[in-house]
Design a binder for these strands. Structure first.
Lengths: 345, 345
DNA sequence: CTGAAAGCGCTTACAG
DNA sequence: CTGAAAGCGCTTACAG
């Protein structure tokens, strides 16, 4: 079944004008008389003509395609990012080409190569790493890459993160102020900068208050592993009285394990805090105290970094960091000052 | 910054062969001598050459792009579908171009038009409607469209759904068998065929057992509206003793509202059942009895329908329906036979 | 097997 | 403002 789409040549013949005239009518800013434009548009309408974006891309060298690589779609944070990014980009005439990275394999490279083959104008890597050989290729091709929710050692690319260190620190202070003395941590994937920064900030916050980490488990940013780590951690003789889980996604699983497998009450027996503030965190079932990563502002920053380079304003990689904010809910025992503030109401 | 990617011409010059030879080396099944292939590949490697997919698409008329339109990314079901569909398609050399449909606006048309502009080889509409004028345009262009999790009146397009009617019916039978006598329903968006089919099946199931719907609310497939509907429904003098919520996404919100806003126990005071079986449903917090829509098989069917038409095997629209299966968990009172079965263990 | 040539559907200098 | 022509980077008959 042949694709029977009208081309600019068809429209030109129908309107009795040149093919270039048709092209100009559909090129914003090109010089065409009103008369010509009306005539061409009428013919185009009749034939159902629309410019072939692929052909246009070949000439202009711009595909208006942005490649997005994601791995953790079961973590509510990422669908939210995808939705916001896609909507934001659509509004600017760009579109998102999605690539799933197998969270296991380190070979993002194969996937990235495919993205490059589509001549994308930019790439967003959401919580995913890139090899240096491919990084060079992107650089050579002049394609901007933004690392989303991940930092890097060298500053070759733009990064967009929240202040994970400060966030971890604030959480430590909150738990100490809440009167906790056996404070634990369940880590994300050790290779992630977000994981390292949150932990470093958390430890720094504890140290500043004269405390040390009471226990540590690893959840790898996966809910089942986090639950298992929690069960092990809380089955010991002397169990923690508070735990910071490196992101909300794992924190939910931890709360479920604590409540339903170990019969503990949150926050009476143990306080739980997370990081991200995804939608589920606000639901009564979890009512999770957490650091909010402002996804809207992070997406905004991502688009800015991308467009700055694509539109030639600012080619230099930018390290954008937005503030994270403590959202106090019911999953952690409150410091006295909060209790007092609440009673005053 | 000019894009400094090597072209087939560059490789040809470097290898001292014709440009067509280079092209053949990268065209599976083209006839080239081993010698030629080796030489070209070596040059390509050195220059970092990869065929420009866009240019190839222009000639072949195949972009290997599939457009996916989604609206409800906060419903876990859809990220799951996106992940599976994308992975499956990637494995076959296709890629997914994502378009967010504003769930409010009916103008999917604008978005669809943009998809068509990219010369996609196929379109998947996940829980989203299409106007008949655009439908004709897709037909004329020979582009297969698959309606995912939605039916239609005419059978112009392929559809992939589960057996929503049978699913609704099974749920009714389960609740009646569980000894419930005041059975309510919270509907999804009234315009959706899935909503209508589930409700029709549910009502038919009740009728077959001599019961009628006790109460009905509308949640529009949105969690906040579902929660509000539940609160209103359960604030009446005589409240339901069971409720079927049209999908899991709303069911979680309903459970939260029942428990935390109305202080009811699930399932002691009220049984709750849903539809989909998303991951959250299995978590202890919800432990939701629900009909499983087998997302893997639905994605499978979608890809099959798409490829059948793209590869010219079967151009006719197919109405694919997979079975839904009852997953019994703890959110609804069990019929005696289940209790007996459990005690036997 | 290999190369020269036409052409996919556009945009964009270049003349007029 | 408008048209003829070149060319984006490829694939694919067509000869040899």
């Amino acid at each position: 079944m042949a694709r029977e789409t009208a081309t600019s040549m068809d429209v030109a013949r129908h309107a009795g004008v040149s093919q270039s005239a048709v092209s100009r009518v559909f090129t914003p800013g090109a010089s065409v008389s009103r008369q010509m434009a009306d005539r061409v548009r009428a013919s185009a309408e009749q034939l159902g003509y629309r410019p072939n974006v692929l052909a246009r891309s070949m000439i202009t060298g711009k595909s208006r395609l942005i490649g997005l690589v994601v791995a953790y779609l079961d973590n509510q944070f990422y669908p939210e990012i995808l939705e916001k990014l896609s909507t934001r980009l659509q509004a600017q005439g760009y579109h998102v080409l999605v690539f799933m990275a197998q969270r296991t394999a380190g070979d993002i490279d194969a996937v990235l190569q495919e993205i490059l083959d589509y001549q994308v104008d930019g790439i967003v890597l959401a919580s995913v790493a890139i090899s240096s050989s491919l990084a060079e290729r992107c650089d050579a091709a002049g394609i901007p890459v933004v690392l989303f929710n991940r930092g890097q050692k060298d500053n070759r690319f733009s990064t967009v993160t929240s202040d994970n260190f400060a966030g971890g620190k604030a959480l430590a202070e909150f738990l100490v102020a809440g009167g906790h003395h056996r404070i634990a941590y369940i880590a994300g994937w050790e290779g992630a900068s977000t994981q390292r920064d949150r932990e470093a900030g958390f430890r720094a916050g504890l140290a500043a208050q004269g405390q040390d980490l009471f226990a540590r488990g690893v959840g790898n940013f996966q809910s089942d592993m986090a639950a298992a780590a929690a069960v092990e951690m809380f089955s010991c003789r002397e169990r923690p009285d508070a735990v910071f889980v490196a992101n909300d996604h794992m924190a939910f699983a931890v709360m479920d394990a604590l409540r339903h497998r170990l019969g503990l009450r949150v926050p009476q027996d143990v306080s739980v805090v997370g990081f991200d503030d995804v939608q589920l965190a606000a639901w009564p079932s979890f009512d999770l105290t957490t650091m909010r990563q402002p996804s809207g502002r992070m997406v905004e920053a991502t688009v800015t970094a991308l467009m700055d380079k694509i539109e030639g304003r600012n080619g230099a990689p930018q390290q954008l960091q937005v503030d994270a904010r403590l959202i106090v809910r019911g999953s952690a025992r409150l410091p006295d000052m909060y209790v007092a503030a609440q009673e005053r109401k």
